[in-house]
Write a protein that binds this DNA or RNA. Sequence first.
DNA 1: GCAAAAAAATGACCTAAATCATACTTCCTA
DNA 2: TAGGAAGTATGATTTAGGTCATTTTTTTGC
Lengths: 236, 236
Amino acid sequence: MKTNRPQMLEKSHKHITCENCLSRKDSLFCSMTGGDLEKVDSNKSCSYFKKGQPLFIEGGLPRGVFCINEGKVKIYSRGEEGKEQIIHVATSGEIVGFRAMFSGEPYSVAANTLEESNICFISKDDFLDLVDTNATLRNGILRELSKELADRASFIKNMAQKSVRERLASALLILDDIYGEDFINLSREDLANFVGTATETLIRLLKDFKDDGFVTTHVRKIEVLDKEGLIRLAGV
Amino acid sequence: MKTNRPQMLEKSHKHITCENCLSRKDSLFCSMTGGDLEKVDSNKSCSYFKKGQPLFIEGGLPRGVFCINEGKVKIYSRGEEGKEQIIHVATSGEIVGFRAMFSGEPYSVAANTLEESNICFISKDDFLDLVDTNATLRNGILRELSKELADRASFIKNMAQKSVRERLASALLILDDIYGEDFINLSREDLANFVGTATETLIRLLKDFKDDGFVTTHVRKIEVLDKEGLIRLAGV
DNA sequence: GCAAAAAAATGACCTAAATCATACTTCCTA
DNA sequence: TAGGAAGTATGATTTAGGTCATTTTTTTGC
């Protein structure tokens, strides 16, 4: 059963040891062993982020990467009239912002927390050093980049060829995966910006989905009731 | 002045030496020196491809990478009703299909020549070996992957937030860059599948652009007359 | 615990762009 | 080099979904 727990994270800046980080098992860092792990551990800094805080902004200069210990982060880019397009929602264990490390260019996207989060920061030098010396990590990163590239190709195809209804179904399935044990917890506006539609349209469609028994809502939180149904709707 | 030359490529399978490959300067391989270059050279195979031939198909198993010596290749993915979404048009010097080398998964996209092309093939083992031992190449690839990721994020945003008109303007600018000295040479259908619209809509909008003096057409070929105008239209 | 602000919801309306139908051109190839 | 197929063009019609305006609910800060 899904939970609706009001998460209360430790608000201090106390150090989270990689050794004990529960999120590490899902992470690119999962393979790391003694020496490298210690190096990261001693050089990283951990912070508590309130909901809505930026990790970095579009056009900013990257100084390092962020490793999510606990929480959710939206990766997005702003269009002309300021409308956000959310590209990805990152969760515990994910490393955020490492693409700009390699491209040598400013951030092409921005990142903000979607809820209160504990996030560690590893400096550019330390990270690149690690990538250079640790072949397993490097291969993990190459694999990750490739997968993400494939994801985005399919994202583009969906935007081009699917109706908003189908895209919403597919977005809910993706988010249900990301939120795992918890309810999907995004504002209607953020959800609309992920699906790529107007907020009003999203609200209407979500109501349809509710009426049809695919989902239910607890104020702003969304619970997926019928995955199979959504899969059929999404037409994957 | 743009050319309209009827390209006639060497139709044999004769070997193209990397050493003399004119496209190499634009390539990820540009940094490669004696030893590595010779290794690639002696292990690769070169082929002439007719217009419309597949390099690989969606879901197929990758055996190596393709290096375009001369020609154009569309990278695309098919939607449910078989409609193609073109993700990228690759040209001389580009290496195609290296993402799947790292992900260990089947191709998530397909690749077909858009015109007759000379393309070299490098086997998976040779390529991965090279990446493992040549740090410069490796960094080039990481940079390339990152840039492409950024490109696709902006592609997604455009699909979500821009009108077909704006997307067409932006697509024409991108293609004008890719085709360089030559006219843009894509079927209306391919162009529609790149912009992400119906073929009829594309034809109508292209006519508008012609009436407004932004482009002119030579049968199927498209010549950009007013870049500045298109930039304004695209709203970049 | 209340006021103000932000978010969510609903209604009315409008248009960009899809779809369907058909005609015209250009390109192959037999 | 004729004839058929593929590609291009245009017209008529429909509709998904965007926009704007307003109300209701929830959240937030004092």
